[in-house]
């Protein structure tokens, strides 16, 4: 059966939830009254979502078939934007680099979040709430400030280099710490990690403690329990966290810009079309690249999550 991932904290995985049991409805009276109630309840949010989200998305897609002519965007229908993407290998290389980065960040976040969340649920009692909140605190201190703090840590004269020099581990400042893909990776992992910890924690928190006991009564050691009990039961939570981390990484353009060595990521090239090159139509066409990747990811994870939950 389906395992609810839901949490008092975020978001989570509507995508994985199989809607259950709607046999009963709140009001029994006449169908007409119920329809009216539905319109009242659902109407405003529906209008908002359609008018201010679905419509813009559709419009963005239409835009990708338009053109800049004489420094203005014209509704002149063409496939040129898409042709341009496939004419030069650079755009797909950038997409590939972004997908690799997003995958690395996501996998690393799982590797850190899972043991942390399991530790909190299993081995803490009095401090648990406080430690859980401590994961949230970084979310309330500005994303940009944290990115900037990493710049201070990783710079040539930064904290890490100074420390390593003083410890005689290195004799020259390591320049590759900052303005490199490593720096982008570390920073992204740091800023998005809480988005992984929260759903994973919520999922593990929902596992009945008796399962852990049963597991160890049956002689399973830590690793075995983790693999056979925690992982499958926490899986929907892990998938939920993965979607957030993967998606946030795919779309970020500020961290690569501040921390990277100029290597472009999909977010950068899209943002540049809107903020620098003034080629909205080409930017709209480029934005279909991460959308296709995410559509595949969402479809797969939805199926995967559902299969695991059965």
């Amino acid at each position: 059966m389906f395992l609810p991932v839901a949490t008092s904290y975020p978001m989570v995985s509507y995508a994985f939830l199989k809607l259950t049991d709607f046999r009963r409805s709140l009001t029994r009276p006449l169908r007409r009254r119920q329809s009216l109630a539905l319109v009242l309840v659902l109407g405003p949010p529906l209008l908002w979502i359609v008018g201010l989200y679905v419509l813009p998305l559709t419009f963005l897609f239409l835009y990708s078939f338009w053109q800049v002519i004489g420094f203005n965007v014209e509704a002149h229908w063409t496939l040129d934007n898409y042709r341009q993407i496939f004419a030069e290998p650079v755009w797909l290389q950038i997409l590939l680099r972004t997908v690799v980065m997003a995958t690395l960040v996501t996998v690393s976040a799982i590797a850190l979040a899972l043991p942390l969340a399991y530790f909190l649920v299993r081995y803490t009692t009095r401090w648990r709430n406080l430690l859980y909140l401590a994961v949230l605190v970084p979310l309330w201190s500005s994303y940009l400030v944290r990115v900037f703090a990493w710049k201070t840590i990783l710079g040539s004269d930064g904290v890490l280099n100074t420390f390593l020099l003083d410890a005689h581990v290195i004799h020259q400042p390591v320049e590759a710490f900052l303005y490199s893909n490593y720096a982008v990776f570390i920073t992204l992992l740091h800023v998005w990690l809480p988005y992984m910890v929260l759903p994973v924690y919520a999922a593990i928190d929902r596992i009945p403690p008796s399962l852990f006991e049963a597991s160890s009564d049956l002689g399973a050691r830590g690793w075995r329990t983790m693999r056979s009990v925690v992982w499958p039961l926490a899986f929907p939570g892990i998938m939920a966290g993965s979607i957030f981390v993967f998606s946030l990484t795919m779309g970020d353009f500020i961290t690569p810009q501040l921390m990277g060595n100029g290597s472009q990521f999909v977010g950068n090239v899209i943002a540049d079309q809107f903020g620098v090159a003034f080629n909205y139509p080409f930017g709209a066409a480029l934005s279909t690249l991460p959308l296709v990747v995410l559509a595949v990811f969402l479809t797969v994870s939805r199926r995967f999550g559902a299969l695991e939950a059965l």
């Binding site: 030069e88 650079v90 290389q93 950038i94 100029g262 290597s263 472009q264 090239v269 090159a277």
Partner: peptide
Amino acid sequence: WVTLWAEVKG
């Protein structure tokens, strides 16, 4: 020029 620049950096 724009494409060339993207290629140099990408």
